[in-house]
């Protein structure tokens, strides 16, 4: 089954910057895909299109077989509940504990309290932070904070996880820990798309690599490395 499909997708921003040019790409259920390319090549734009944070200029995007281009505004939250998102800057709320940060994702979609407790505990065990449940983000290392943000993205068990340079702020050893968690999430059947320009990570993982250059796909390799 096609989890994410881009058909002739072009994105031109209001200031006439062409971020993506006629992109065609299919990502199947359960795949782990690296989106690589230099800064400004369109990786973040690609991810933002999937969660409808930006609108494509032309072409169609399908998520789990559904065309999301004409999605009503009121249906966007439903789309996002099925897509977990992780970013370089974690986006944790500083005045909430680790538990509350993760629980927040379930609270705002109206999950009942007992379910929240169970799911948050489970996902925090998955990322190995169950013992930090009552800490605040500033009491955690950057790597731990990123694991909390992965926990929050995954707590609702979405079929898709998008990660935009999740290791961008982390040292190589910490990054390795993050990749282990993402692999584990992928192993349980989640489709993972990760934008990065971290050579070492891509090379060590040997997964599918899609390379962007100035908004165009210049390479799509089954078990690829970062570049030549």
């Amino acid at each position: 089954m096609n989890m994410i499909e881009f058909r002739n997708v072009t994105k031109i921003y209001e200031n006439n910057t062409t971020a993506l040019k006629n992109i065609n790409l299919i990502i199947k259920k359960g795949e782990f895909v690296f989106l690589v390319g230099p800064s400004g090549s369109g990786k973040s734009t690609f991810i933002k299109l999937i969660i409808k944070e930006v609108e494509e200029t032309s072409g169609s995007i399908f998520v789990a077989g559904r065309n999301i281009c004409n999605l009503k505004l009121s249906r966007i939250p439903q789309l996002r509940r099925n897509i977990g998102c992780v970013f370089q800057d974690f986006k944790l709320l500083p005045n909430k504990t680790i538990f509350e940060n993760v629980a927040f994702a379930l609270e705002v979609i109206g999950k009942p309290g007992y379910e929240i407790k169970i799911q948050v505990s489970q996902v925090l065990k998955l990322v190995g932070l169950y013992d930090k449940i009552n800490s605040y983000p500033h009491q955690l290392s950057a790597g731990e904070q990123q694991r909390v943000s992965i926990a929050r993205a995954f707590v609702n068990r979405p079929p898709i996880l998008l990660a935009d340079e999740p290791t961008g702020n982390l040292d190589p050893i910490t990054s390795e820990g993050i990749m282990k968690i993402l692999s584990r999430i992928n192993l349980i059947g989640t489709t993972v798309l990760m934008a990065t320009h971290d050579k070492n990570i891509v090379n060590s993982m040997r997964r599918r690599v899609v390379e962007l250059e100035e908004g165009e796909i210049v390479r799509d390799q089954k078990r690829g490395v970062y570049g030549d």
């Binding site: 505004l73 009121s74 996002r80 998102c85 986006k91 109206g110 929050r152």
Partner: peptide, 16 residues
């Protein structure tokens, strides 16, 4: 604003 950003990211409805 940070909370609002996260809310939208995880799929809180507009009304929420």
């Amino acid at each position: 604003r940070k909370e609002i950003e996260v809310m939208k990211l995880v799929g809180a409805t507009n009304w929420f």
